[in-house]
């Protein structure tokens, strides 16, 4: 319960800061030197936050759809041949550092939001795919037996049994993807994507600690909120399937 209260307070402080960042200037003033501004002014922090969240949302949705479709395909009879390969590729892919994937996307795609989106999408697909696969293959034989006994067609079984049972694990995969994407998108500002990383990097370049801290806090609070939001969804999904 205390966790929920802390999340609510963190969310409200974040909202207040995003709406009127200048009100918080006295808090950040001690962190500046030589009369440097206490609040990042070049671009509004709110618009950077929205752009950051926009990039992450698009990437997470795209990787969820792609990862889920792939997981469904390799668990059908016609796609079984691809299952071992898919497992290997996912395992190997997840050892690749997200930052390196971002850096490697630039030579191919150039600067801007595009390479960041593609890197986030490709990397984010792996946790979603892995978890969806675990959810689709990990159910008890009794469930499959019961579904066959009820006379469900394969499509009905997928929609009414397999996917609802896999939902909690799928959500856990989306949570991993969302948190990783949020962090990697921050680094995306080094390849000219419009994200909150801009604030942190401006702070690092001008040795203005206030910028570093405010950028870091906004991203950090967002990450913690998203993490807890997904966990709440997972609990609800597990309750609904009766697994808990």
């Amino acid at each position: 319960m205390t966790g929920r209260w802390m999340m609510a307070i963190a969310g409200m402080v974040l909202a207040a800061f995003l709406v009127a960042p200048d009100r918080f200037a006295p808090l950040f003033q001690p962190l500046t030197r030589n009369g440097a501004p206490a609040i990042y002014q070049q671009t509004s922090i709110l618009s950077l936050t929205l752009s950051h969240l926009g990039i992450v949302t698009v990437a997470v949705l795209a990787s969820t759809v792609a990862g889920l479709v792939l997981a469904i395909l390799v668990t059908r009879r016609s796609g079984r041949e691809f299952l071992p390969l898919a497992r290997t590729v996912t395992a190997v892919g997840q050892t690749l550092p997200p930052v390196a994937v971002l850096a490697l996307a630039v030579p191919v795609m150039g600067f801007g939001t595009g390479p960041t989106l593609v890197a986030l999408f490709l990397y984010g697909m792996l946790p979603v795919f892995e978890n969806a696969l675990a959810g689709l293959t990990g159910q008890s034989p009794q469930v499959a037996e019961a579904a066959r006994g009820m006379g469900l067609t394969p499509v009905q079984r997928l929609w009414q049994i397999d996917l609802p049972l896999a939902l909690p694990l799928l959500l856990a995969g989306m949570r991993l993807t969302a948190v990783i994407s949020l962090g990697t998108a921050t680094i995306g500002s080094t390849v000219a994507a419009r994200t909150l990383g801009e604030v942190i990097i401006a702070g690092l370049l001008s040795a203005n600690t206030a910028f570093v801290v405010q950028g870091g806090l906004v991203v950090g609070i967002l990450a913690v909120l998203i993490h807890h939001g997904f966990q709440a969804l997972e609990r609800r999904a597990r309750l609904r399937t009766g697994l808990d």
């Binding site: 962190l31 930052v99 948190v179 949020l182 962090g183 990697t184 921050t186 680094i187 990383g197 942190i200 990097i201 702070g203 690092l204 600690t209 570093v212 801290v213 950028g215 870091g216 806090l217 991203v219 950090g220 990450a223 913690v224 993490h227």
Partner: peptide, 14 residues
């Protein structure tokens, strides 16, 4: 673990 890396690295400096 949830705090994004660039933020944590940056905050460590001050």
């Amino acid at each position: 673990q949830t705090v994004p890396s660039l933020a944590l690295f940056g905050i460590m400096i001050p």
